[in-house]
Write a protein that binds this DNA or RNA. Structure first.
Lengths: 254, 254
DNA sequence: AGAGATTTGTTCGTATGTATT
DNA sequence: TAATACATACGAACAAATCTC
């Protein structure tokens, strides 16, 4: 018989793992947890057993459970919080990447409250690549603006914008009064602009990015690099956005 | 003095780490390696010191070095290969997401050789969400095609396509003769189609995805979900693509 | 082709730090 | 303050993939 010879408080059927076969224990555990989440054994938002409990159930070291949990967190299935526990993941925001992409409009359209703050404004000389994209000469000054944008108070995007300083010198002052970049551009005589091209990649965040986005280091960020132009075709800015991949989904309509 | 009192073959300036401060050792190591890669100390494609060597240089356990390396791999800076070593990362393919997205055309435009093979063709009943997107009734049969697409022999995208079986029943036979989906569709009377909407997210790959894409588990995949329609506006297929994020960059032009 | 060395991958055990309750 | 739960770090051993001779 394969029955567990334990007393009444038998194990929650952790079940035996195939040891010494080709499959690492942590993978098997991740797989089972994934199945249990998909099948609803662990409901969305619900709490998962602690690492120690899982280690006990599967009869492995806690490290082995941790490896499995890290995997699931990276795949977006669970959220791990130090000192609190681990939880099954939820909810995503659709972020439309049309030519006219305005953060607050997009967020409001999804019945969420947009927000944001300027983290840093600085000035530097344009190096070759950036100068070319901005259509200015190398070494000319550019204004660099870092902004964290929120939806319902949760960090969603971390943006770094590069503006030619000659045209947008007033930007730093304007942003101090109102953190909306769109509003600041309007005040600079650019009532409208549109996205010309967007390049999208994904990678794990740097520690700072993870911190600012309040997201796990094991969770990827979507990285967009966009060039915005005004109606005259002049380049307004070159910007990089880092989206918490678990909370945002980019949408491209053709 | 803070000089190292060792002999001529002094340490490669591993330098001392700040122990017991707020910053984890593995983060400090990752940061230094990142700096060394950025500054060209380790050239792209070049080999990094072995884990054991780094552990020696920084005077930490090998696990600590491994944690740092995993971080860098996930961020796309290095590539780790079991039994071989670790290397500084390189090269990326631009994958344009226009309305007319054709794998082979995109790849050839970048002077690379497109390729691919059909992994699996099966039939199943459409569940609610899929049926709605395909514009058919729930439970009607759909053909599921899994295809691995390559550029210069390297896996780039793993695609799962869902076609309504009533209209595209001949697809399985056609794909057996030629793995090109575009060609098969043409043979089914769909000489042209275009992408209506694409949703993009990122996550870590499942073990199978990592295996098929020949990519590390710590490296994210870009996930696209697209709906293709024919000139009459009829839905041709709903497909999911998983791109090796280290080798591809999605480009959206507006 | 095979044997041994090298290098990364997995697992255990143990100890201590940090955040939350 | 104490207990709980996740995070970091060390040491040891063996497995798996690769390379070299």
């Amino acid at each position: 018989m394969t029955d567990d010879p334990n007393g009444p408080e038998a194990l929650p059927a952790g079940g035996l793992l195939a040891r010494g076969q080709g499959v690492a224990l942590w993978r098997q555990i991740a797989q089972r947890l994934e199945r249990d989440i998909a099948s609803g054994v662990h409901a969305p938002g619900g709490r998962l057993p602690t690492e120690a409990e899982l280690a006990g159930q599967y009869n492995v070291n806690r490290h082995t459970v941790r490896r499995a949990m890290e995997e699931l967190e990276g795949r977006g299935l669970v959220r791990i919080e130090q000192g609190r526990g681990s939880f099954v993941a939820e909810d995503v925001v659709d972020y439309s990447l049309g030519p006219r992409t305005r953060f607050s409009e997009i967020i409001r359209r999804q019945n969420r409250e947009p927000g944001g703050r300027i983290l840093r404004v600085s000035e530097m000389a344009a190096e070759t690549g950036l100068a070319e994209q901005l259509g200015i000469r190398r070494g000319r000054p550019v204004i660099v603006v870092e902004r964290l944008s929120l939806a319902d108070g949760r960090p969603l995007v971390l943006g770094t914008h590069h503006f030619p300083a000659t045209r947008f010198g007033r930007l730093p002052d304007l942003l101090r009064a109102d953190p909306s970049i769109t509003a600041a551009l309007t005040a600079c005589g650019v009532p409208d602009y549109r996205r010309r091209v967007t390049r999208i990649t994904a990678r794990l965040p740097t520690p700072e990015e993870a911190e600012l986005l309040q997201q796990s280091r094991n969770r990827p960020v979507l990285v967009t690099e966009a060039v915005n132009i005004d109606p005259a075709g002049e380049v307004v800015d070159v910007s990089t956005g880092r989206y918490a991949a678990g909370r945002a989904q980019l949408v491209v309509e053709s």
